[in-house]
Design a protein around this nucleic acid. Structure first.
Lengths: 105, 105
DNA sequence: TATTTAATTACGCAATATTTTTATTAACTA
DNA sequence: TAGTTAATAAAAATATTGCGTAATTAAATA
């Protein structure tokens, strides 16, 4: 039983991890292909990918000795759900403001 | 010139800070009123609020010796902008899938 | 089979983050 | 004015994170 290190917000808190996601938005890439785009070492990138994987932002599939990384929607949906709550909050707030402003028209 | 500690993703990475936002979604609260809802000390909450303020998730207004905290939309919009990019990514992806599936109909 | 390549694991360390305790500032109130 | 309340600042302790090096595993290749 492996324990999860961080949640989705923690996963997104690191700039290198967000850069990985951005790179993967252009297409599937191996760990090495990703690592080439960074100053940091390959093990560092490996760990970042693991965090992204644990939080369902990325899926990794073994292909021979390579591991191919691809964006996964589920993690993004989780984040989306979170922000939707506040989106609703703001909509309601501005609706109420609008109602208030129109009260005497 | 004071330097900002973290960006919006870092600001949201802490569970206590997200709880502060949730509590503020119910209405304006003073620092003390917020602190009551946590196990951690008041200075800790103070610092969390500062981070939220620096990232435009919360505005604080002085009222006598109290400081009233309120949600601020700007920070949420920043996050929204980020996720919108990936939202578009997924929409495009599934559109393409749909196009592919319908190709021979 | 020996070597190379892709990647992870293990370990340790430096940098950051979070929290606490103590001290301080400023605004109310008796 | 003296005491209390709300909050932050400063300093220090603790916890977590990110990263590198070295070692290891597994697959491809000469």
């Amino acid at each position: 039983m492996k324990k999860k290190n961080t949640d989705i917000f923690g996963a997104l808190a690191d700039p290198n991890r967000r850069k990985i996601l951005m790179l993967l938005s252009a297409g599937i890439l191996s760990v090495s292909a990703l690592a080439e785009q960074f100053e940091v070492s390959r093990p560092a990138i490996s760990k970042h990918i693991k965090v992204l994987e644990e939080n369902n932002l990325v899926t990794v599939t073994d292909q021979g000795r390579e591991r191919l990384c691809e964006l996964q929607q589920q993690g993004f949906l989780e984040l989306y759900d979170w922000i939707k709550f506040y989106d609703a909050f703001w909509n309601e707030k501005f609706n109420n403001l609008e109602n208030y402003l129109n009260k005497d028209l």
